[in-house]
């Protein structure tokens, strides 16, 4: 049965999420543009959110709000964690963007290579 568990579709969700995470990670480490790096960071962040929410899903469950005729609910705990994480995420992204704006005003560019070159010149 070992080979069957390996091929079972119950893990596809996680695998696509990992693929998304790695795309975000690749953007962060390979691109030099600071705004694009932040977009990559957001992609990574959102895919982590999807991972958490997929783990909280219960088959046949419904949204965790009590109502007539509903017995099975998905796990509310990941929802709470991610709900707050989203708002904190935008606040920290805004802080990062503010830093990008200041860097642009100071160096006149938002490309990592150019900033590094200017730093080397002044040294």
């Amino acid at each position: 049965m070992e080979s069957f568990t390996f091929l079972s579709p119950g893990l596809y969700n996680y695998w696509i999420v990992i693929f998304l995470m790695m795309v975000g990670f690749y953007i962060v480490i390979s691109r030099g543009n600071l705004v694009k790096k932040l977009v990559g960071l957001n992609i990574f962040q959102t895919s982590v959110f999807v991972l958490y929410i997929s783990m909280g899903k219960v088959e046949g469950g419904t949204a965790p709000i009590f109502g007539e005729g509903f017995e099975t609910f998905s796990n509310p705990l990941p929802h709470v964690l991610i709900l707050t994480a989203i708002v904190v995420g935008i606040a920290t992204t805004a802080l990062g963007l503010a830093l990008v704006v200041r860097i642009r005003e100071e160096y006149g560019t938002i490309e990592e290579d150019d900033i590094q070159a200017q730093e080397d010149e002044t040294r």
Partner: peptide, 28 residues
């Protein structure tokens, strides 16, 4: 998130991620 029963999270993500975040990025 809606499909995975997390309606509160979907609500927040639609308002924050697709709304405010895009506006701030464009401002930058």
């Amino acid at each position: 998130f809606v499909n995975l029963d997390a309606v509160d999270v979907a609500f927040t993500e639609a308002a924050v991620g697709a709304g405010i975040s895009t506006v701030l990025m464009l401002g930058t």
